[in-house]
């Protein structure tokens, strides 16, 4: 036989439910009719056969099995059938509205009914007497509104939100870039005028020196080596830088400087 995993499933043996213990509907103390068991002797066990019958009896239950109970004797009128007491029962009455009766088969509809009302004049009279409906067309006066001319309140909210957001972004950017607030507070001082003039003088002297050197080589137009080219270019740029510095110092506004500690 082929193997199957389902054979591994434990078979549950169901014990059939035990039926209720049998109890005879008959009185166990009743002697068995016709039994000859235990009839001899003076003592008789329960259920033993009993064939004590009258000598002449041929049928019927054995004696002593149908002894009448003296407490349940037949009383007068016991066997009369009892009539149950009359109970007062109210007739059923339907509660609530009743529908009109369905017309009978033989009923005839009422014919030839005619109104005497003159609808033309009645309508005309009704129309004449009608009071016109008052239509309320009053428009609200927007000029009298409390917030007339004011920018709407939500705009303030939006502005506030934008401002807060910008602040947050600024703070974040600053934090990211490593700025600290102290930078702004670093002390600056105004450059003294004599100091400025001394600086300009020194720069000019330097410019003269560089220019002198430069002029000594401007005749040379055949720049055949890298060194020459570089030297010329270096001098030119130095001169330009010096000129820019002089220009900056000569501007007529006050100059603020930071002193390195």
């Amino acid at each position: 036989m082929a193997e199957s995993i389902y054979n591994l499933v434990p078979v549950e043996i169901e014990n059939p439910a035990k039926p209720k213990m049998y109890r005879s509907m008959h009185d166990p103390k009743t002697p068995v009719t016709g039994s000859t068991f235990g009839i001899r002797g003076t003592t008789q066990s329960l259920g033993a056969g009993c064939i004590k019958k009258k000598d002449t009896a041929t049928f019927g239950k054995p004696p002593r099995t149908q002894i009448p109970d003296p407490r349940t004797y037949l009383k007068g009128g016991d066997k009369l059938s009892r009539v149950p007491a009359r109970v007062e029962v109210d007739e059923f009455h339907y509660q609530g509205e009743r529908k009109e009766l369905v017309p009978k088969r033989g009923d005839r509809p009422v014919m030839g009914l005619k109104t005497t009302k003159n609808f033309i004049t009645a309508n005309a009279v009704e129309a004449i007497l009608q009071v016109p409906k008052i239509k309320v067309t009053e428009e609200p006066d927007y000029l009298k509104k409390t917030d007339y001319g004011q920018p709407p309140g939500y705009l303030e909210q939006v502005k506030e939100e934008i401002r807060r957001e910008n602040e947050m972004i600024d703070a974040y950017v600053k934090e990211q870039m490593g700025y600290c607030h102290d930078d702004n507070d670093e002390p600056t001082e105004q450059l003294a005028d004599d100091e400025r003039i001394a600086l300009i003088k020194a720069l000019k002297t330097k410019w003269d020196a560089v220019n002198a050197k430069y002029q000594k080589m401007t005749h040379n137009v055949n720049l055949d080596t890298v060194g020459k080219v570089k030297r010329k270019e270096a001098m030119e740029s130095e001169l330009k830088a010096l000129e820019a510095d002089i220009g900056k110092l000569e501007k007529p506004q006050p100059i603020y400087i930071k002193r390195d500690c």
Binding site: A2, E3, S4, I5, Y6, N7, L8
Partner: peptide, 21 residues
């Protein structure tokens, strides 16, 4: 049909077994 247990193994083989024996 529950007639075999098939398994895959680290040596690259597929092995099938009878489920009772």
């Amino acid at each position: 049909d529950g007639s075999e247990i098939v398994s895959g193994w680290s040596d690259g083989r597929v092995r099938s077994f009878f489920p009772e024996s």
